[in-house]
Design a protein around this nucleic acid. Structure first.
Length: 194
DNA sequence: CATGGGATTGACT
DNA sequence: GTCAATCCCATGC
């Protein structure tokens, strides 16, 4: 994954990240669910403009944006678009590939589909914390790799984002069809393939 | 300086 | 289905 990959419209990056591999040290998983956030809509933190919290979002692409949600969970995003534009892709779910036992120890759970099936869960499983905010995804320790050789691109489902109250109508959530690791059941009436 | 609101999860009714 | 936990940060006095 090079910097140009991230320096594109954030919705395109969110779509293309499904199938890629998120890695931190010995733990890695295939991305099966993403959401796009852009400064132009109010659900995005960058919508309020340049602040201490959002300056990473407005910085160069291919950096990690990690923040704490509900006082408890760390959520991992990849900063996108050109420097000066506030936008990022939230990684919402992975299918675990490597380091399963370490993930199980961190999560206190056994079943693979329970380890990374949510944005807070995957951050805990991969030990991604606030200290990783602003780290470069091209230089590690956190990196996003191309899909594995032989990995078959699944059908992609598109729908509205989860857990937000503002701009909830935008269809900026992308899921790999059929994955048991997706974070929430899909609303039946809104199902749509791309 | 005080306050309020989350891009969530897990436990419980 | 409901609900509390718990911390960071933006906002407003």
């Amino acid at each position: 994954m090079n910097r140009d990959f991230y320096a594109r419209p954030v919705v395109a990056v969110a779509r293309d990240l499904v199938g890629c591999v998120l890695r931190h040290g010995p733990c890695a998983g295939t991305i099966v669910e993403t959401e796009a956030y852009h400064q132009s809509e109010p659900a995005c933190h960058a919508h309020v403009g340049l602040t201490g919290r959002t300056h990473i979002l407005f910085g160069p692409p291919a950096r990690a944006y990690v923040y704490r949600s509900y006082g408890i969970h760390a959520l991992f995003n990849a900063v996108c678009e050109e420097e000066g534009v506030g936008a990022a892709v939230l990684v919402r779910a992975l299918e675990p590939l490597e380091g399963l036992d370490l993930m199980r120890a961190r999560r206190g759970l056994e079943r693979p589909e329970d380890l990374c099936s949510g944005p807070g869960k995957l951050a805990q499983a991969l030990d991604i914390e606030l200290e990783h905010n602003g780290t470069d995804l091209l230089e590690g320790p956190i990196a996003i790799e191309s899909p594995l050789p032989g990995w078959e691109a699944p059908e992609l489902l598109v729908g509205p984002r989860i857990g937000i109250t503002k701009a909830a109508e935008l269809p900026w959530r992308f899921c790999a069809a059929g994955s048991r690791s997706v974070s929430k059941p899909w609303p039946a009436g809104l199902r749509e393939t791309v």
